[in-house]
Amino acid sequence: MRRLNPSLVAGGVIVGVIVATALLSFVWTPYDATFVDPSVRLATPSWAHWFGTDKFGRDVLSQIMVGSRTTLFVGVVAVGVAAVIGVPLGVLAAMTPRWPSELIMRTNDLLLAFPALLLAIMFGAVFGASTLTAMVAIGIASVPSFARVIRSGALQVMRTEYVLAARAAGRKPFPIALRHVLPNVTSLVTVQASVSFAIAVLAEAALSFLGYGTPPPTPSWGRMLQESQEFLFSAPRLAVFPGIAIALAVLGFNLLGDGLRDRFDPKLEDRR
């Protein structure tokens, strides 16, 4: 029986809490997260409003809860986009002869050199700021990292004896990719997805902060931070709660990614 991996446990717990909060917010939040109630604006934390209220009198806890939905949704879609494009590209690059492989990877490098936020802001400027554009842009920006990691994994698999045997037996590349390569890079995809998820969470927050992400009044942690700027001196708690939420989510997914990597990589397991 394997020893429990602390990163995996801590990451799993944090991510679990965030997922549970997001699910709970569909059926219950203390208040309607977008309900404006000027009579309680800028209330300090109390039993009625655990995290206080913002300048519109909206309950901060309810907003954080609903905001976790936005965060997870963006993460899932962005990572989905990145994986769906990046994984086949990586496998293709590993299995094709020299020049097509080079072409794929150099194009990949070009995209890698392009800052993700800049790409997302360009998307926002062209297609209008929305959660969808943010998700797609973050997803596209994450494609190169997927392709690169998967290519290296797939190259290793391609050198294994069973793949050589399959090729010698005349199996076509597509069945080899599906049957032998993809199942053997699944662990890499999982780890990369977890790490990319953390990046996507931060990118969504940054985009919403800059006004290129989730438009108001849909709660978003990044925009909550942006709206708190005015109150940094008079009500700094407004920045603290979404700030902690973002930090926790990023930490959680990073720990989960680390834990999964340790778990899947036997070499690292031996070293410990």
Binding site: A206, F209, L210, G222, L232, P236, R237, A239, V240
Partner: peptide, 21 residues
């Protein structure tokens, strides 16, 4: 306390504001 909270809040904002400054 207020200052400490303000400091933490500033730190939380710092990474994001760096993008817009």
């Amino acid at each position: 306390t207020t200052r400490a909270v303000a400091f933490v809040a500033s730190a939380a904002l710092l990474a994001l504001t760096a993008c817009s400054a």
